[in-house]
């Protein structure tokens, strides 16, 4: 998927869970879900489930381990979409 379109989709997914508005406004691929957006870890599970639903993919726990940033999420989504 095209990079900016993917970032925009991820931005919509994380919005309900963010606890730092400024970091959300300036979200980029370098944004960290926990350090920057302050998403609590229980809601990080929701982010991953929402990503699965929106892109119609399944993320194994071993892939989930690294999903702490926008960049990491983009890599995993692209990998799963390519394998479809």
């Amino acid at each position: 998927m095209e990079k900016q379109a993917l970032i925009a989709k991820l931005k919509t997914i994380v919005e309900p869970y963010i606890q730092d508005e400024d970091a959300f406004k300036s979200l980029s691929e370098n944004t960290d879900f926990v350090k920057d957006l302050k998403i609590n870890s229980a809601n990080l599970v929701d982010v991953i489930l929402d990503v699965e639903d929106v892109f119609d993919i399944r993320i194994e726990n071993v892939d989930m381990e690294k999903m702490l940033s926008v960049k990491a999420a983009m890599d995993i989504v692209n990998e799963k979409l390519a394998a479809k």
Partner: peptide, 15 residues
């Protein structure tokens, strides 16, 4: 937690 997280949603517990 009851307001923020729905642990009953599909696949949540399994993750």
């Amino acid at each position: 937690a009851a307001l923020e997280s729905n642990w009953k949603r599909p696949r949540f517990l399994d993750k």
